[in-house]
Simulated assay, not measured.
Amino acid sequence: MRSLVLAFVLALSPLPNLPQIPPGSEIRVVSPDLLTVYVVWHVEQRNLVLQSKLAAPANREVRVLFRVDGGYRPPYNGVTTPGGDVVLLIQGERISLSELLTRTYRLNLPNGRVLPEVR
């Protein structure tokens, strides 16, 4: 029960080193070696706008990079899901990236889809 409460609290709190995601920011989902870029989103007002996309296979280890105010934050580790989301591993807990972006940072995901989009 305690871990469930901790996971819920973490999902509603900002990521470490990322108190906000202002307009002009960029979110990238990349391979662990940072060489393959799966998805790039640009934040315009409160909307995520797709810049480029390469489908990431399910259950693939990825890194999520945030470029805020012209500089990249340290990457966050995650794993892609069969439904197209990325589950971040934060302080030993699994947090949905799409839930974090919508509930905590109040960003609008296009067409109700989650990151990265997998077809």
Rank of each mutant, 00 (worst) to 15 (best):
S25L: 12
P116G: 09
N17P: 00
V68I: 12
D85R: 09
S3Q: 06
I21Y: 04
R103C: 12
P110Y: 15
V87T: 15
L115T: 12
V40Y: 02
T104H: 08
L88Y: 08
N59G: 05
T36E: 15
T36F: 03
P23D: 13
N47G: 01
A11Q: 14
L15R: 07
P75V: 08
P82Q: 04
V79N: 13
E117C: 03
L89W: 04
V64A: 06
V68D: 03
E117F: 01
N47I: 00
G83W: 01
L35H: 10
V40D: 02
W41H: 03
R94A: 08
F66I: 04
E117Y: 14
S52Y: 01
L88P: 06
I90P: 02
Y72Q: 09
G71W: 02
P32L: 13
E26M: 09
I90H: 01
T81H: 01
F66H: 13
V68K: 02
I95L: 07
V39Y: 13
G84A: 10
T80G: 05
N108M: 15
Y76M: 12
R103D: 14
P16W: 02
L115A: 10
Q91P: 00
S13T: 15
S25P: 14
R63F: 06
R2K: 03
D69A: 07
L6N: 11
A11K: 11
G24D: 14
V43T: 13
R113E: 13
G70E: 03
L12A: 08
F66V: 01
V30Q: 04
L50V: 14
Y76A: 03
G83F: 01
P75R: 08
M1K: 02
L18K: 10
L18C: 03
Y72N: 01
S98L: 01
L34D: 09
I95G: 03
R46N: 06
D33F: 08
R119C: 07
G71I: 04
L10R: 15
S13E: 14
L97R: 02
S3I: 05
L48S: 13
G112A: 08
L89F: 06
L50G: 06
V114R: 13
R119W: 12
N77I: 07
L109Q: 10
L89T: 09
P32E: 08
G112N: 06
V64T: 15
